[in-house]
Nucleic acid binder design. Structure first.
Lengths: 211, 211
DNA sequence: GTCTATAGGTGGATAGAC
DNA sequence: GTCTATCCACCTATAGAC
């Protein structure tokens, strides 16, 4: 059993940069040359670790999805209430946006038609995992009397995922994180109040700086 | 004053196809060669009408934005109520999605970081126009007692634009228009009911088949 | 207004030395 | 595991004939 010598493995650094490039420029908006020059390695070295761009893309989603899932599991094990879970969930998105990025899978959803098949199914799987987790949280909150909404939790969960992804997409164009924050706050307010009573100043803390 | 001879001008056909390619594959997901081969012309001919890809992109947004604005003006002049305006607005989006496309400017928002400057400002302008129009409709509906929401209309308008864009983005990945329709219906229901009472089957008619 | 031809560059990807 | 060198397909864009 051998621990990696380098603090950050080369392949990981490649993935880190590739991830940022996809999240900012899209899957068709960067090249192996971009990564190679930034990391001071050759394209050939990149191809050693990631034979094809399709494979690189697949690995990116895999890693991103796993990290996301871990964060959601950690939230479940934290024992906090449903509303706080939703706040933390929103904060993950906000952290991504603060780094001037779009959600990896939200970005890939835009590029969807041009993606190789393995990446396509990984993208939709990401959304489904998120929707299922949110649906469970919503149900938990409804049972606890903490959240109020009509209809199936999964349907509300889908509204949340779509709205947050869209809010990131648009807010990033304006380079205004506040655009995202206001929308996210309003979505949560509408769920936590018995009737639609969302006015005044809302703010959310900052516990999950991510990505 | 001379009417174009051809039923559809060549430049228009080029724009039509380029628009579809951007809406399905993104601005970095197609080439002049794609358009040329599909229309049976040469790349050089394309460059005659649209010297650079940046100029082609700018013209695409211009045309799309103008068509959208015309549709909104027509709605204003139709004299229908605020809720029906919102329904028609949603139906424009639904029509785009049914053609297996993403909103042009929603797609370009994903490609934003890679766009030439003139395209960037045209994209954000599109969103602002939509938000302003929606804010006016929301205010109209609130005054008429037809819509119920708290806070500034512009804030709710931004929620609507972002949520609809996100719903298109995600629904297109699943190739499920119904995902979009459920979310859009729920958004409108939440605005039209005094309290959040959205259950059961909702449906919306189909008056604006669009691009 | 459309064509042929091509420039000049970059894309993803591979062979083979070290 | 990283390099040099290279392939070939494709990219945006232009020159100049018709």
């Amino acid at each position: 059993m051998r621990v990696q010598t380098a603090r950050t493995d080369t392949a990981d650094r490649m993935l880190d940069l590739a991830e940022r490039l996809v999240q900012t420029r899209g899957f068709n908006g960067f090249s192996y040359a971009d990564i190679a020059s930034a990391l001071d390695v050759t394209k050939a070295s990149l191809h050693y670790h990631f034979p094809t761009k399709a494979e690189l893309g697949r690995r990116l989603i895999e890693r991103y999805s796993d990290a996301f899932t871990s964060a959601l599991v950690a939230l479940d094990e934290s024992g906090v209430g449903a509303l706080d879970k939703l706040r933390a969930y929103v904060e993950i998105y906000a952290g991504v946006l603060r780094n001037e990025r779009m959600c990896l899978c939200g970005m890939l959803a835009a590029d969807y038609a041009t993606l190789p098949e393995p990446m396509k199914s990984a993208v939709t799987h990401f959304f489904e995992v998120n929707e299922r987790w949110l649906a469970a949280v919503l149900e938990q909150g409804r049972v606890a009397g903490e959240l109020h909404f009509a209809g199936p939790p999964l349907e509300v969960a889908r509204l949340l995922v779509s709205s947050l992804e869209g809010a990131m997409l648009v807010a990033r164009s304006f380079n205004e994180v506040s655009r995202f924050q206001w929308i996210a706050d309003r979505l949560l307010t509408d769920l936590s109040a018995a009737e639609s009573v969302s006015t005044g100043a809302r703010s959310i803390e900052n516990p999950y700086p991510v990505g």
